[in-house]
Design a protein around this nucleic acid. Structure first.
Length: 656
DNA sequence: ATTAGGG
DNA sequence: CCCTAAT
């Protein structure tokens, strides 16, 4: 009896196991090591090939490298997926097993937790996830077993639900029905995230202890799998099919080992309701291989958050949905696939997927403009237009320079749950509505406030008469704020936001004196056209870690800020930097105490600057008048501070 | 949480 | 601007 036959019979699955070092095909059944094992357990020990890659070929072109497989063992302590005792329940315990790839990561050991009903195997090192839903596919495929000998495997899927797999060394078949989910085992999603899940319909007896859900996650850091599967097969919401005896087997493989290049004729293959057999190839782990495999994984991981380069392999080039229009120039990053164009409104470009792709492949976005939070400028009527421009610029740079976060609006609603998948949110790639919007918002709970406030005596005298002229954003917006090196035309200012109604500004408390109602405020929001590329880094940044690791951007002090600083110091002295900061940089609350230091540092440099000759000064020229004030203030406060310190010292001494 | 000094 | 010690 062929090993695969047995396997298939028992489990309702055909397993192609690729084994790393052996080529023997013996399989034996062992009376279980499972604690619960009333049943015999089959241990598959078949080793097939070294590369442990099986290529499933759909038609002549589809070659999936499926290097896979292992039966997940429930056995006490699992080693690295070496053994997968199998329940040999006559009722077909259901090969609730996972086919895994070869040992891939160091995490493997800890990964194989078999919990009731669900087992998870995670390979942290994988940069990609392969999760192909082949449940219910019909048709026949020719597979190629890519082992050392490149032995071709033919998988014949028939509507009868039988599948046979043949290799040079043997032919395997299964009577089991494996229903494929309409999705072609084609892969291809962003980040090479492909999912495979198989569902078999074999009525089975009670589930083995280890349950019927087996999930193999190749990569663990993927919170948002790119939605290659439908909701019901979504990673997290994974649950067993209600049907008794249904078994689901999910194979998550590293995309790297999948290569599917099906030449499908318009979705002709992999139709719904097709039955197919899952073919697994078992492979035995070998640590030696692990180290070898780790390298690419780790390497790939580095790419994960950045654009997937085309050089990354066929998958990236083939697997990415091509957008209807002429597409990107290979900019195939995740959500960050932002292209910028010079035209008007924000477009939500849903990519048209090719027939062989997952239904829910990439969501392609074209962000033509970013919405910037409202800017409020307080400026006296006597100020010059030039100063107004600069004030606006300051405000904008303050926003962009600070901690930004991107808000996502979908159908007018702000989406706050970062853990939701796009799919769950309704942002599917088939969604053609223009209901998606992005905003740039300050990360802190502070709305940007006007710069250059009353603290600037020279420009904005403290005792500015009450009726301060407010220049709503739109009025200044005519100056067309162009950020970055956008090649967008100046008239890109988006005035009609369409669906981009900021339904909730809660994360940014309104400025205290804001007297405009929301609706108006919205229409007044400044929406400069932004070079998307300049901002694309924002959505790209995924982990907080990387964000934290991000060095604060340098934000040179403007003359206004210097002025405010000088003013504050003049008033408060050099010892109360917190107050100084509050006073001079009230608008920069998103800055932390470090900013205190920033202010002090600036003061330090100012003092220094004012002492050197103008020729030696660098950076933006600071008016001599200001420098004089710096010197004066410094001269005044230095002794003052010393006095205070002495006072404090004496006080403490007295107290003691 | 601030402040201060140094890198 | 960052790090970090001292307060």
């Amino acid at each position: 009896m062929c090993a695969f036959d047995l396997l298939a019979t028992v489990a309702g699955k055909l397993l192609l196991a690729a084994e790393s070092s052996r080529s023997s095909t013996d399989t034996w059944i062992e009376n279980d090591q499972c604690a619960f094992g009333k049943d015999s357990v089959m241990k598959e020990k078949r080793d097939v090939d070294k590369s442990s890659e099986v290529k499933l070929c759909e038609q002549e072109t589809c070659d999936m490298s499926l290097f896979v497989s292992k039966l997940v063992s429930q056995a006490p302590v699992n080693y690295t997926l070496k053994e997968f005792p199998h329940e040999l329940n006559d009722a077909c315990s259901g090969l609730a097993s996972v086919i895994t790839t070869s040992d891939c990561s160091e995490k493997a050991g800890s990964a194989e937790k078999l919990v009731n009903g669900e087992s998870k195997i995670e390979y942290g090192s994988f940069a990609s996830k392969v999760d192909v839903d082949i449940v219910g596919c019909r048709g026949s495929s020719t597979c190629k077993l890519e082992n050392g000998s490149r032995e071709p495997i033919k998988i014949d899927q028939q509507n009868t639900g039988k599948a046979s797999v043949s290799t040079r060394t043997g032919m395997f078949s299964s009577e089991d029905q494996v229903v494929c989910d309409r999705k072609p085992p084609a892969l291809l999603c962003s980040h090479n995230s492909v999912k495979v899940s198989c569902l078999d319909h074999i009525p089975c007896g009670p589930l083995p202890v280890y349950g019927d859900d087996v999930k193999l996650v190749v990569r663990d850091d993927d919170e948002n799998s790119s939605g290659c599967t439908q909701p019901r097969t979504a990673n997290k919401a994974y649950r067993p099919s209600p049907r008794i005896g249904d078994r689901r087997i999910r194979k998550l493989l590293a995309s790297k080992y999948w290569k599917v290049t099906p030449k499908l004729k318009n979705g002709e293959h992999f139709n719904n309701d097709t039955e197919t057999k899952a073919v697994y190839h078992r492979k035995k782990s070998h640590k030696q291989q692990r180290s070898q495999r780790d390298y690419p994984f780790k390497k790939r991981k580095l790419y994960f958050c950045s654009s997937v380069s085309n050089s990354d392999g066929e998958i990236s080039s083939d697997g990415i949905a091509s957008s209807p229009g002429k597409g990107s120039n290979g900019d195939t990053s995740c959500l960050g696939a932002i292209m910028h164009e010079a035209t008007g409104t924000l477009a939500y470009a849903a990519g048209q997927h090719r027939s062989f792709q997952c239904r829910d492949s990439h969501v392609k976005l074209k962000i033509k403009s970013f919405r910037v939070p409202e800017l409020f400028i307080d400026i006296p009527e006597t100020a010059t237009v030039g100063s107004l421009k600069r004030a606006v610029m300051e405000a904008v740079t303050a926003i962009l320079g600070g901690e930004l976060c991107v808000g996502v609006l979908h159908q007018g609603k702000k989406i706050r749950d970062d853990n939701k998948t796009l799919l769950q949110t309704g942002i599917t790639h088939g969604n053609k509505t223009d209901a998606l919007g992005f905003t740039l918002e300050p990360n802190t709970s502070q709305a940007p406030q006007s710069l250059g406030q009353e603290d600037n005596p020279s420009l904005f005298p403290c005792d500015t008469p009450q009726p301060i002229t407010r220049y709503p954003a739109p009025s200044v917006a005519h100056n067309t704020i162009q950020l970055g090196t956008s090649d967008a035309s100046p008239d890109c200012l988006v005035t009609n936001l369409g669906n981009l109604v900021d339904s909730d500004h809660d994360s940014a408390p309104s400025p205290p004196d804001m007297s405009i109602d929301k609706g108006t405020a919205d229409s007044r929001a400044l929406v400069p056209t932004v070079n998307a590329e300049a901002l694309s880094v924002v959505p790209m940044r995924k982990s907080k870690r990387s964000e934290a690791a991000q060095r604060r951007i340098r934000r040179p002090f403007s003359v206004y800020e210097v002025e405010a600083l000088v003013q504050a110091v003049e008033k408060l002295g050099t010892g109360r930097w917190r107050d100084v900061k509050l006073r001079a940089f009230d608008n920069a609350k998103h800055r932390t105490y470090v900013d205190l230091k920033v202010g002090k540092d600036k003061w330090k440099t100012l003092v220094h600057t004012s002492r050197i000759s103008p020729q030696q000064r660098r950076g933006e020229p600071v008016p001599q008048e200001l420098l004089d004030r710096v010197l004066a203030a410094h001269a005044y406060w230095s002794p003052q501070q010393a006095k205070q310190q002495l006072k404090q010292q004496s006080e403490t001494c007295l107290l003691l």
